[in-house]
């Protein structure tokens, strides 16, 4: 009787089959396999446990694991679909699929709405919008007086809040985003078109000794 040896490929916990992920997303099987390479690189940067932690996500975006950024935090929280504090491989692929050039504009509009709906309440309030503008100013070199910030928020609400109830709901957001397509510019990553040809960056951690 012969023995058959089946080569077992070791995958990180939370790994999902590439065929399933390709079926559910805009990626092909080969593209999902390429994304696994990228996922492996990021998830072994600091914690080496096969999950992407917040610090690892921040490091690849800013080359600094300690830099906190309001909007990077929002993106991380949405990628972390299960809400368990880490991004698993399946969550990584499903979330990146939203940014694929072939994904419909409607899906991108919905995802962008979820980024800006800070309280997950199903609408964007004036105070939330102001909070986001202030967060943006905080991370940039742009300084605007409080009056100017109020004016910007007021004018945006005038354009987007069609029923004047002081809330931007998903339908109003959809209308507004369609009239202002530049808002969705960062919702499409051209890199994802040629992902099987890509050589992913080698992220290198610089550990600094803090006294």
């Amino acid at each position: 009787m012969g023995c058959a040896f089946v080569k077992q490929v070791k995958h990180a916990p939370g790994y999902e089959e590439s065929t399933l992920l390709a079926y559910e997303t805009a990626f092909t099987i080969k593209e999902v396999e390429s994304l696994y390479e990228l996922f492996e690189k990021i998830s072994h940067l600091i914690f080496n446990d096969g999950f992407i932690h917040r610090e690892e996500f921040q490091f690849v975006l800013f080359k600094d694991s300690n830099k906190r950024n309001f909007f990077a935090d929002r993106i991380f929280d949405l990628f972390d679909i299960k809400g368990n504090g880490v991004i698993e491989f399946g969550e990584f692929v499903r979330s990146l699929s939203i940014f694929h050039p072939y994904t419909s504009q409607d899906e991108k509009i919905t995802f962008a709405f979820r980024i800006y709906d800070l309280k997950n309440a199903g609408f964007i309030e004036r105070e939330e919008l102001k909070e986001m503008v202030l967060a943006l100013l905080n991370e940039s070199d742009l300084f605007l007086t409080d009056d100017v910030v109020e004016t910007i928020v007021d004018q945006t609400f005038k354009q987007a809040d069609l029923n004047c109830d002081e809330k931007i709901d998903p339908m109003e957001w959809k209308e507004f985003a369609k009239k202002n397509p530049s808002l969705l510019k960062n919702m499409t990553l051209p890199y994802l078109m040629d992902i099987t040809m890509a050589e992913f960056p080698n992220f290198v951690m610089n550990f600094e000794v803090v006294d």
């Binding site: 950024n69 991370e139 910007i152 960062n186």
Partner: peptide, 26 residues
């Protein structure tokens, strides 16, 4: 465009934290 005429979402969308291209840039 004067800042006071800017659309708040357009301003927000310039955040580096919303630019996932860095995941792929060498």
């Amino acid at each position: 465009e004067r800042p006071s005429q800017m659309n708040a979402f357009e301003l927000i969308s310039t955040s580096q934290g919303l630019n996932l291209g860095s995941l792929f840039e060498k």
